[in-house]
Simulated assay, not measured.
Amino acid sequence: MNLPLKLTDRKRQAVVDAAIAEFRTSGFEATSMDKIAATAGVSKRTVYNHFPSKDELFAQILHQLWNSTAALMETPYVAGLPLRQQLMEILGKKMAMLQDAYFLDLARVAIAETIHSPARAHEMVARLSAKEEAVTQWLRAAQADGKLRDADPALASQMLQGQLKTFAFWPQVTLNQPPLDAATQQKVLDATVDMFLAYYGRDSGREPAPAN
């Protein structure tokens, strides 16, 4: 059971939410701590008590973005279970994350700011890639179990997750398209998993690509 947040925690989250809203509307550089305080409904001193600078506020937004991917770390490979069943569970979690309105707001703010700061972009990509390593580890385990063809697991992971993001992340983040409805989400999941297994599955009938 989730306990109610303390007043100080509620104020801290209100500041983060206000920063997300203001960064989205005006951009990082044009947003002042005064404006964030006004939007959050707290004093400027309260903002600075929690976050000494805008950079630290932005770092908190990134931190929450990284933490949103933690559920993917909770799905280890299980020998004996059908690959399709396991992949549907993994990608189902990722789909839920990618279509979550709060996650999309975090991602929009992070991506918009990193366009103006290559150093931040490099850090963001590196840290998100580290989180997505969980899927790569799952694929390695499936290969070791003889269920997937020998191939670069990092590339396979990028192709698997990239297919999902093509429909269920980038249109929402870059074009402000609405989240997919449940039926479309299921279609995307089914097609993504079936296409992946058709190429990488041991029983697909496809010869493995030669190693470079």
Rank of each mutant, 00 (worst) to 15 (best):
M1W: 13
E22V: 00
Q99C: 03
L72G: 07
L155Q: 15
D105P: 07
D34C: 07
R206H: 06
L98N: 08
K93Q: 13
Q161W: 00
T192P: 02
L128V: 07
V109M: 09
V125S: 06
R140D: 06
L91Y: 02
E89C: 00
Q143F: 07
A30Y: 10
K94F: 10
T174M: 08
A126L: 03
Q158A: 08
A71S: 10
A142H: 11
N2D: 14
A141R: 11
K6P: 06
Q13E: 15
K131T: 12
A30G: 02
Q86Y: 09
E133Y: 09
A107N: 08
P171N: 10
Y200W: 10
L180H: 02
I36P: 07
M73Y: 01
I36L: 13
Q13M: 12
V173M: 15
A96P: 10
A110I: 03
D150E: 15
H122Y: 08
G27D: 00
S68F: 13
N212F: 13
G41A: 09
I36G: 03
I111V: 04
A107I: 04
A144R: 03
D152G: 05
N212Q: 09
E22N: 06
Q163H: 05
R120T: 11
K11L: 05
A107R: 04
R84T: 07
S204W: 11
A18G: 07
A144D: 13
K187S: 02
R140W: 15
L3S: 12
G92A: 03
L139R: 06
R108V: 09
L91R: 08
A211W: 08
A151V: 15
R202S: 12
M73K: 12
T39I: 01
L7P: 05
W170H: 08
E74C: 05
L104S: 04
S43D: 09
N212M: 13
